[in-house]
Design a protein around this nucleic acid. Structure first.
Length: 425
RNA sequence: GUGGGUGUAGCUCAGCUGGUUAGAGCACCGGAUUGUGGUUCCGGGUGUCGUGGGUUCAAAUCCCAUCAUCCACCCCA
């Protein structure tokens, strides 16, 4: 069998690295300026870490999509399918509740879910994640949303939208589910099979149905937002107020839904049209109670994550993205005889130590070939050395843009190159 | 898990009503050019036609299976 990357995984080639690094740099810049510390956790954890965090809502899907395995010591391990659980485990394990509160943490790296692959959805994918732990007011939620919005902005996106909603408090959700069951009981048989199943397991999800007939049937029903209890309603109003004051554009989403039980109140997503069916760049919300579920102190939290692949996909859709020119080597050395090969190598090492990007031909070349090699390397300058130059302890330094060439004594080469590079820059 | 599209050179693709030796452009390598590049010209195919099986005198082409990939459903912690 021909060796190939596993289904749903991909190589990030040199030509794509700039985009990846720019996302990383944007996240670091924006999040650390808000006081977030970088946290790197292992990519696998005891399976318990994830199972405890999903709790009762351990949807079969969630379980099924985890990469779980037993290691040689018989440990039951899982490749992380999300960041939050591992971050909370580390928070607890390192006693971060004793740090000045709140604690803000950001992470990035690969995650693993055994999903069926399509555009914007892979089995190994990458996210940038942010959490604020220890604050339960709406201000923390609003700040997190602002940071999500601005991090995406810093990545160069201009057309992303924040959808804001609330899943309410647990009692609101119970009440709303009861309401849905009551309202839909009589017409359940008219719903699509998928929606009938949802009605049994998690009625709120019926609202997500893409079936036109389902949508018609539920059109007249109240949305979760219509039935929030007073505390959750006040909380959401305050988040809206902050975002408005800070100039973060958002759309109120009357039926935002979360798959996991630990979410409460604020929920939000960032969307971008034009990147296929997976238009969600990322999302998050408030998860009071999660830390306690994992055996830690009772602390509230709020956080989000976005998918790096999807953001890069969106970046490519931006009309005015600057076509950043790829970096080029400073100098390419052309040895005209065998001795010059070693001399070129030695010179390259010395110039590289001084921080310049220097390449050289690994075999003796004739001038025509050597300069063609230099061209193909995209270097700005070339330097040629043969027997004649050796006698004079010099190199022929050639500007590959203008064609201008002059002989430079080898001890002066670094300075001569530096001078010309700074002139062009 | 379900449905549909697509797999031919490193890349983008043509060839597919079965028929000599499987092609193009780009890329790549060599030469024209043994002391001066980019352009140009010449030469080189670098391929298990995704894989396995079947039909046939004959399969890149038709059939089945399988794998991969893309799009969508589903789901999205």
């Amino acid at each position: 069998m021909r060796l190939q990357a596993v289904k749903g995984t991909q190589d990030i080639l040199p030509r794509d690295q700039a985009a990846w690094l720019s996302v990383s740099a944007a996240a670091k810049e924006v999040l650390e300026a808000a006081g977030a510390g970088a946290l790197t956790t292992p990519i696998f954890e005891y399976t318990d870490v994830f199972e405890k965090s999903v709790g009762d809502s351990a949807d079969l899907v969630v379980q099924k999509e985890m990469y779980t395995f037993e290691d040689r010591g018989g440990r039951n391990l899982t490749l992380r399918p999300e960041f939050t659980a591992g971050v909370m485990r580390a928070f607890i394990e390192h006693g971060m509740h004793t740090l000045p509160q709140p604690v803000k943490l950001w992470s990035q790296g690969p995650l693993f879910r055994a999903e069926n692959v399509q555009r914007g959805r892979y089995r190994q994918f990458h996210q940038v994640n942010f959490e604020t732990i220890g604050l339960d007011g709406p201000l923390a939620d609003a700040e997190a949303i602002e940071l999500l919005y601005r991090t995406l902005r810093r990545c160069g996106l201009t057309r992303h939208r924040i959808k804001l909603g609330s899943v309410g408090d647990p009692e609101d959700r119970q009440a709303y589910n009861a309401y849905l069951r009551a309202e839909l009981a009589g017409i359940a048989h008219e719903l699509s099979p998928v929606s009938q199943e949802r009605l049994r397991l998690n009625p709120m999800r019926v609202l997500d149905s893409k079936d036109a007939n389902d949508q018609r049937l539920i059109a007249g029903l109240q949305r979760p937002l219509d039935r929030l209890g007073p505390p959750a309603r006040a909380h959401l109003a305050k988040v809206e107020e902050y975002l408005g004051a800070w100039g973060v554009p958002f759309d109120l989403e009357p039926a935002i839904v979360r798959g996991l039980d630990y979410y409460r109140r604020t929920a939000f997503e960032a969307h971008y049209e034009g990147i296929g069916a997976q238009s969600a760049l990322g999302g998050g919300g408030r998860y009071d109670g999660l830390i306690e579920m994992l055996g830690g102190p009772s602390l509230p939290g709020t956080g989000w994550a976005f998918g790096v692949e999807r953001v890069i996909d969106a970046m490519a859709q931006e009309p005015d993205r600057e076509a950043g020119e790829a970096p080029r080597p400073d100098l390419f050395l052309v040895p005209l005889d065998d001795d010059a090969v070693d001399e070129a190598a030695a010179l390259a090492m010395s110039l590289r130590r001084a921080g310049r990007w220097v390449e050289f031909a690994y075999q003796r070349r004739n001038p025509g070939k050597g300069l063609r090699d230099a061209d193909r390397s995209r270097a700005r300058f070339a330097a040629v050395r043969g027997a004649e130059e050796r006698q004079r302890r010099a190199w022929q330094l050639k500007d590959l843009t203008s064609g201008a060439q002059l002989e430079v004594v080898e001890t002066d080469l670094a300075a001569a190159l530096d001078e010309r590079l700074s002139k062009n820059a």
